[in-house]
Write a protein that binds this DNA or RNA. Structure first.
Length: 595
DNA sequence: CGCATTATGAGTTGCAGG
DNA sequence: CCTGCAACTCATAATGCG
């Protein structure tokens, strides 16, 4: 996806002066802005008139959190007085749509919204609750949360948030509110972000060139004519200019790897990006076009650090990391892991043909090569006493690369074993073994995980900053790559709040936590979408704040190996990136309000 | 139903060579 | 500048078996 980045384009006039939007008090910015709560405009608090007592209380409550009087009234009108959760959601959406990078410091969430309610002994409560599994998400603050959810139909919530998400995303891309809503009107609310941006882009081009009638434009963007669509997108790219799209570095060493530390490298973070808390976000580097531009724009315009884990391991793993950590004085985990196939698997050397030039494995994925394939390879090679002809060599090497096969006997290749994958990714042996987990699930969980040495290298700078340990919020924890990395760095884990959908993964982390005799608290949840303001405030009041927020959101719809649903950042699972951003920004605001 | 097995390309990038 | 080619990719869904 090539998004339309408004800045730097004079000819297209992305931001018209006569646009009508809700940020009328501030000057129009020509820069694509972050949809952050941190950047919310704080109203000057007009006196509200003719309100019931409860309504006045309600308004005061939200105004106390930093929202303007006018906005709060509007939100209450839309949602009714009874449903504070929906009101808050609406307010957050409005705030996000308001663009005001100049006012980043004005986040005035009241740190004590009825603090007596929150200062109960929650830690004790959930330590008990965790013992009865699967009820974790609901066993919390039942009296409050349950009721709210039941009064609001799920479908309504989902529709609202989906629509808002799209508006939000479009706003973040620098489109005006008018363009966004027009596009949604014309393409329908079910239209994907791609379709919407295409529509806007096409409209721009049409306006520019005056050669497409509206009806024609509409027809083209109903998906009937892919050639013309592609051509139009190309034209848009030319117009917008590709100079500000994120490109992958070559070699992919980010801000340095142990063998090439980039000693004197400095970077300046945008003010809004600085902590607390520190945060660390991860996803696949080779995502569809435009994805990393969007991710970076949401995550405070921080430039992603793209690193291939082949500099830390015998297997490649090209990933992008967005974080606000210092990068000076990083150090790697000891012992240094093997960096070549030969070092990692000495026994394969005996069978490794001279005509297979590989010394690194490709990316570990979630599925392995079939026995049928390895058998085809064996029988193809068996016909020759010496080296096979070049055509056969080419076929075999191609398949070995594709499926990450290693030589385990004469003419015999095989996929990696789960424990070998564990080693390559930096996990302790048998990390994913036992406890009722199937072999298939082991491959899947490992294939979706961090490379521990790589992540540890980035997180190592925290050791001096937090000599007494850290509180961590871990989203999409998986099998606990970040937790393992910190533990191996010798950074004490005081409180770890972990959110992970898969029960087998939660079990793996819980098991590792017990096996390693952790002295801190591991608190887990299963759904990021239900992790709302109340919960964040409750937890922060209890543990005193987070030092680090880590997470790699789902890559399903971004990953190249997905033939079926590589739908980009708006895909079913990958769209959970926006929940990472939402929760991070929430934590940021609550933390700032407690200063 | 759980688990294992298998088949299923496209999108993107880099690079060499016109 | 362009074109062709090689390389690579945190996956999904259908099927069969016990």
């Amino acid at each position: 996806m090539q998004d339309g980045n408004g800045s730097g384009s004079e000819s297209l006039d992305w931001n018209t002066d006569d646009e009508v939007d809700i940020r009328s008090e501030t000057e129009t910015s020509s820069h694509p802005t972050l949809p952050t709560l941190s950047g919310a405009i704080i109203g000057n608090g007009e006196a509200s008139t003719s309100n019931s007592a409860s309504r006045t209380m309600l308004i005061a409550h939200f105004v106390g959190m930093g929202f303007s009087d006018k906005l709060v009234s509007k939100a209450i009108d839309e949602n009714g007085e009874g449903d504070t959760e929906s009101i808050l959601n609406t307010l957050l959406t409005y705030s996000s749509l308001e663009n005001s990078p100049e006012d980043e410091e004005q986040c005035n969430i009241n740190s004590e919204p009825s603090s007596s309610d929150f200062n109960e002994t929650f830690v004790d409560d959930y330590n008990d609750n965790f013992l009865d599994e699967d009820s974790d998400a609901d066993s919390w603050g039942e009296n409050e949360v349950e009721v709210k959810i039941k009064t609001e139909p799920d479908s309504a919530l989902a529709t609202l948030s989906e629509k808002d998400n799209k508006l939000l995303a479009l706003a973040s891309m620098g489109y005006t509110r008018e363009e966004a809503s027009t596009a949604m009107e014309r393409c329908g609310q079910e239209a994907s972000i791609l379709v919407l941006t295409d529509f806007i882009c096409a409209a721009q081009v049409a306006r520019e060139q005056d050669c497409y009638l509206p009806e024609e434009t509409k027809r083209i963007y109903n998906g009937s004519n892919p050639m013309k669509k592609r051509k139009l997108i190309e034209m848009c790219k030319k117009k917008v200019g590709a100079e500000d799209t994120i490109r992958l570095p070559n070699p992919m060493i980010g801000f340095g790897v142990p063998s090439q530390p980039l000693e004197d490298f400095r970077r300046s973070l945008p003010e809004a990006a600085k902590g607390p808390p520190y945060f660390y976000y991860e996803n696949v580097a080779l995502a569809p076009k435009g994805v990393w531009d969007t991710i970076s724009r949401f995550l405070y315009e921080i430039e992603p650090e793209f690193v291939d884990s082949k500099y830390f391991s015998a297997t490649a793993r090209k990933r992008g990391y967005v974080h606000n950590l210092p990068i000076k004085n990083r150090f790697p985990l000891i012992p240094l892991p093997p960096l070549t196939i030969h070092q990692a698997f000495p026994l394969t050397r005996k069978w490794w043909p001279a005509w297979d030039p590989r010394d690194k494995l490709n990316c570990i994925q979630t599925a392995i090569g079939s026995a049928k394939l390895t058998e085809r390879i064996r029988s193809a090679l068996e016909r020759y006493d010496n080296d096979p002809p070049e055509s056969v060599q080419k076929f075999v090497i191609e398949q070995c690369r594709k499926w990450n096969l290693v030589w385990v006997g004469r003419n015999k290749v095989a996929p990696l074993e789960p424990d070998e994958v564990e080693m390559l990714l930096g996990f302790p042996k048998n990390h994913t073994r036992g406890g009722g987990i199937s072999r298939t699930d082991r491959y899947k969980s490992l294939g979706n995980s961090f490379q521990v040495d790589t992540v540890a290298y980035h997180l190592s700078v925290l050791k001096d900053i937090f000599p007494n340990g850290i509180n961590m919020l871990s989203l999409f924890s998986g099998i606990g790559g970040a937790e393992v990395a910190l533990h191996r760095l010798g950074i004490k884990l005081k409180n770890v709040v972990s959110i992970e959908k898969s029960k087998v993964n939660r079990d793996i982390v819980r098991s590792w936590w017990e096996q390693t005799n952790q002295t801190g608290n591991l608190i887990d949840f299963d759904d990021v979408q239900q992790f709302d303001v109340d919960r964040v405030v409750q937890i922060i009041n209890n543990i005193g704040g987070f030092d680090l927020v880590v997470g790699g959101s789902p890559c399903n719809n971004l990953a190249g190996s997905n033939r079926v649903s590589r739908d980009g950042l708006e895909g079913k699972e990958s769209a959970l990136f926006y929940d990472y951003f939402r929760i991070l920004d929430l934590v940021k605001c609550v933390m700032r309000s407690r200063e």
